[in-house]
Amino acid sequence: MSMITEITLIAVVVAVACALPGVFLVLRGVTMVSDAITHTVLLGIVLAFFITQDLNSPLLMIGATLVGVATVWLIETIQRSALVSTDAAIGIVFPLFFSIAIILITLYAGDVHLDEDAVLMGDLAFAPFRRVDVFGLDMGPQSLWVMSVILVMNALFIFFFYKELKITTFDPAFAAALGFTPMIIHYALMTLVSLTAVGAYDSVGSILIVGFMVGPALSGYLLTHSLKKMISITVLIAVVNSVSGVQLAFFFDTTIAGMIAVVTGFTTLLVLVFSPRKGLYKQQLNQKRARKLLDKRIKTLT
């Protein structure tokens, strides 16, 4: 495989893996919680690294996922106290965890590859250099494997718990009355979001993960009235964004993840304005039409 093919493949897998849980984050209105998670998992990575002293240890992933879930729990506990709103609770927890991680890195891990730039932006261009080999056989880039596994997990979760995700998102009180504990589904989803965030960290960095999770899902939401179609459209848009993002990045010789994020932002805005069902343009059109109709009616009345 050529390098650009490998990078494209990684980008597509990362984008789809993020977009799938993103669908439910958007529908539940908790996209900013995912923003917090994608940053606070760094604390888990750092803490696990201090224990294992090995950047390739799978413990890093577990530690990070646990901190991600702890983030959700803490945000919700603070918010339940009714002293502050959800966004304020996020504003308390996210910077606290993230800055502790940054302090720990600068104090004790200055010489290790755990620098803040890579954390925020990641580096897709270098992803193909970390490879998996089995008995001397090159099995392809490591991040492709990791993210593929996460992608499959996310897809299986949505496949098996589709009904449960749908009902707990749409009508939590009714779901709870039927015995589908919304809390279990919620934390399962948030665990997967954390795991996805950690996995995607290396290649795209935390800021862009949020874009990957929110952008395509939002486009899907604006383009259809069916949840199944929304998931399909979301995945499709995630693929289109990442493929064209990689191409453009190579063309302009610039950051790949950054370019995908720009493309993502651009397609999302495009859909926001031109969605044939709920787009801003359509809304304007409807308003004008309604106004004309009203004028006509008033004329016939007077």
């Binding site: 529908l27 749409f170 009508d171 009714f174 779901a175 039927l178 589908f180 939401y221 259809t224 929304m230």
Partner: peptide
């Protein structure tokens, strides 16, 4: 008023939720 009526789902699907239990 307790649910999000902008949720991407059809009338048929909402009624079908009654069978989920």
């Amino acid at each position: 008023t307790s649910v999000d009526w902008d949720f991407p789902t059809t009338v048929r699907d909402v009624v079908l939720m009654g069978r989920y239990g």
